[in-house]
Nucleic acid binder design. Structure first.
Lengths: 209, 209
DNA sequence: GGAATCTTGTTAAAATATTCTCAGACTTAG
DNA sequence: CTAAGTCTGAGAATATTTTAACAAGATTCC
């Protein structure tokens, strides 16, 4: 039975399923039951079936799931076959590392442009992505379709920059700054990578293990 | 009433409290009630009080919380005043970006060394951190105290490397590779930064907003 | 083809997490 | 000093998430 509102907990597990299924594909596994998938992932079979059932019926009784088919379904749910357009704001060490290493295309994103304030990088390209001056951002957004903006900028300009972009209609932010961004508009989505938060939870857990 | 087992959900909120309190400190705010803190953070006052009560009684009826004091308490719980030792394995674009930008010392970590296989970086220093050959890793770990290892290496060597290190007594991993690491030992803690998972959840949410 | 075995999707139960409520302690203002 | 107002921490009530149970469909093996 398809569900209307999918909980955040479920959504956050989807990429992990997708990864595992990609791996199974690569290993040539053709079919898998929720039970064995659960064993591999250290998740209960119940949870897996419950999760999948939010989106449809992908399995067959007595057989299990076809790995390739299930992978495609979850990929589709996550939007890996979309053609989302993305621009990066801030081409410092982190921004450059992402442009060079991260497989954007495998996740359904094409990186069209990057922006920075530094004359050192303006006019260059990083891994084929042209770097423009921040002053050109407004015009760029108005004349191109941009689904997601990656924020790898200093934290003191993060909220202001986001506000400007939201005003121009951007509704997806991949935020690497150490601040909690927010918007009055409910359909603007923020996804944060908070390095410090992550390391601090590890700090807590190794001290209290 | 202090609790014995703290849930993961609570632990993951602590760094956010810490960040907000740091900000309040900087703004010169001396006291704050759970209610107003909740308003600023978009969290219910109940949840805040419930969370804090897992660790002790930090507030005062009729007054609220002393910002500086509460910040210190939470910092202490998270271990920002610890002196954890950390080494980085893999000095590619991402590793370098972290070494250059991430404020390790503010989170209670000192970065003592980095390791890589590439002759181009072995023998250099990045932001004051010496880069050694991977072949020296074993000896280094045996002769130094290492609490956390940062893994910024290719995913195909991630689990093997982790296994070697666990064998040598490392029990904290900050994992940036796109694989799920695991260990039979329960006191080994993994904290993952899965970039792709993060972007995929954003992809889902902008498509289903 | 038929019996035994699997395995799903769903519903129910159990476990967790969040929110509500309120007595009692403290603060502030007069 | 007193009265009115504020705010915490704890316990109770909800809500959500996870796990268990199971009927029914499908597969496999003989």
């Amino acid at each position: 039975m398809k569900k209307e509102n999918i909980s955040d907990a479920v959504i956050r597990r989807l990429p992990r399923y997708y990864r595992q299924l990609t791996d199974l594909c690569a290993r040539g596994v053709v079919r898998i039951s929720s039970h064995s998938l659960g064993q591999e992932m250290n998740i209960t079979a119940s949870q897996i079936r419950q999760d999948f059932s939010c989106f449809g019926e992908f399995g067959q009784q007595g057989y299990g799931y076809n790995v390739e088919e299930l992978r495609a379904e979850i990929g589709h749910i996550l939007g890996v076959d979309n053609d989302h357009h993305l621009v990066m704001i801030g081409v410092g060490n982190l921004g450059r590392a992402l442009l060079r290493n991260f497989p954007f295309s495998q996740t359904g994103f094409s990186v069209d442009a990057a922006f920075d304030v530094s004359p050192n990088v303006i006019g260059t390209t990083v891994n084929g992505v042209p770097v423009y001056a921040m002053s050109e951002l407004e015009h760029y957004i108005e004349t191109h379709s941009v689904d997601v903006v990656v924020l790898t900028i200093p934290q003191d300009v993060a909220q202001d920059t986001a506000d400007r972009l939201i005003e121009m209609g951007v509704h997806g932010f991949w935020n690497f700054t150490n601040v909690e961004l927010s918007s009055a508009k409910a359909d603007v989505k923020f996804e944060n990578i908070h390095f410090a938060d992550s390391l601090l939870t590890l700090s807590y857990r190794i001290a209290n293990r």
